[in-house]
Design a protein around this nucleic acid. Sequence first.
DNA 1: TAGATAAGTGACCAATCGGTCATTTGTGTT
DNA 2: AACACAAATGACCGATTGGTCACTTATCTA
Lengths: 224, 224
Amino acid sequence: MSDPKTDTGRPRRKNMRAAEREKLIVEEAVRFFAESGFEGQTRELAKRMGVSHAVIYRHFDSKDALIERVYDHVYLKRWNPEWEQLILDRDRPLQERLTQFYVAYAERVFDYDWVRLFVSSGLKSYGLTERYLDIIRTRIIEPAAQELRESRGGPEAPPPSDTPPAEEVELFWGLHGAVFYIAIRKYVYNIPLEINVEATVRATVANFFEGVLHGTRQTNRQEF
Amino acid sequence: MSDPKTDTGRPRRKNMRAAEREKLIVEEAVRFFAESGFEGQTRELAKRMGVSHAVIYRHFDSKDALIERVYDHVYLKRWNPEWEQLILDRDRPLQERLTQFYVAYAERVFDYDWVRLFVSSGLKSYGLTERYLDIIRTRIIEPAAQELRESRGGPEAPPPSDTPPAEEVELFWGLHGAVFYIAIRKYVYNIPLEINVEATVRATVANFFEGVLHGTRQTNRQEF
DNA sequence: TAGATAAGTGACCAATCGGTCATTTGTGTT
DNA sequence: AACACAAATGACCGATTGGTCACTTATCTA
């Protein structure tokens, strides 16, 4: 039908350069493991690429080694270091900074592959999710909590300390959960969401700050 | 050492009545699948009970049949129908109702087995999580959203309709996510939480209502 | 164009999986 | 104590698993 030379689709069964093949395997593996979980078979993964499963073992020592590469590819590349400065930028109101952060975060991370692989690896407890959430905690949650504590307390507020305020930290984890749960509903629970994600994120952050700024601090909080 | 008749521990290797054995299998399977995921082997499950894995197949037609029973045992028994009336009880402020609900909900459901099995089955998409979240939506989220819409709107507010207000519904999903994410952090991501869960739930609900009641409705919301 | 080298194949392996079955062992009944 | 039946066993089956290897095929280079 079509001349393989002019066929714009994937080159059929031709040999590929090692680097190119590896990249292709990792990309296909990301999607595959996101769908099937890590117990998905290498043979089926290979079949998707139209090659024998032995090819995978030419390029990766083991299935676990491939999974490691999948992690790298999916997680590490999606963290934007600028977010860390954004949270601390006192030229803008804290609410504005967090709105921008969560809108950008959702844009990057609310994705079938990312969310499912993250939750899957959480259940397997390879220690990977713990490391990632450490970044969220130390770079986003705790700085934001510190900013809030310093900004909203009057002159009589306790002086800022090195240890982040536990009460505010938990509230920000609540905000984080409210936002991320959107992705969980969509990609883990398969709930069809017809909502505008960005608008929902904005509204969630806005509602959070309305509570946090206008609320009375004295009630319902003493038990932390 | 101890007379097997008076030994309060598990009876060693003795035959059990069918009903008793089935119950024991299901209970052990709950814990086992929560730890290992549904790909855990029946042989290892049997080994935990000190029996051969053929025993499982005497009492259950297949592994899938056992998993079905595990679902029943874990999910259906933990829903309290009184919660549905609680949300609609206009003798009390809506915030109080939701606080009571989420404190009770967390008490029942924030549990290693429950949370991990729920997320696992979500990833497998057996349709089970969808059914469960339908209950949450129709019995809790949408009624609460309706209550809020009717309570906070002044006389000029639009008349209540049969279809729940989408804007409020999404906000309440945010509250639900903020609360449930506590359990996800603890049991899926293995983050050690030293917090008082009940106090955190109360604070989360309180902060949510401070935002929802004191906030200005006009800003940041028009895009839903 | 011929040889060298890298890429890909398919058969194979040992371990593991869900599931079955003839047989043995325990237990309530008479 | 003897019988009948239920419970449990362990060997076995066929399919599937991650992984290997000798061999074939494609591509680059001289």
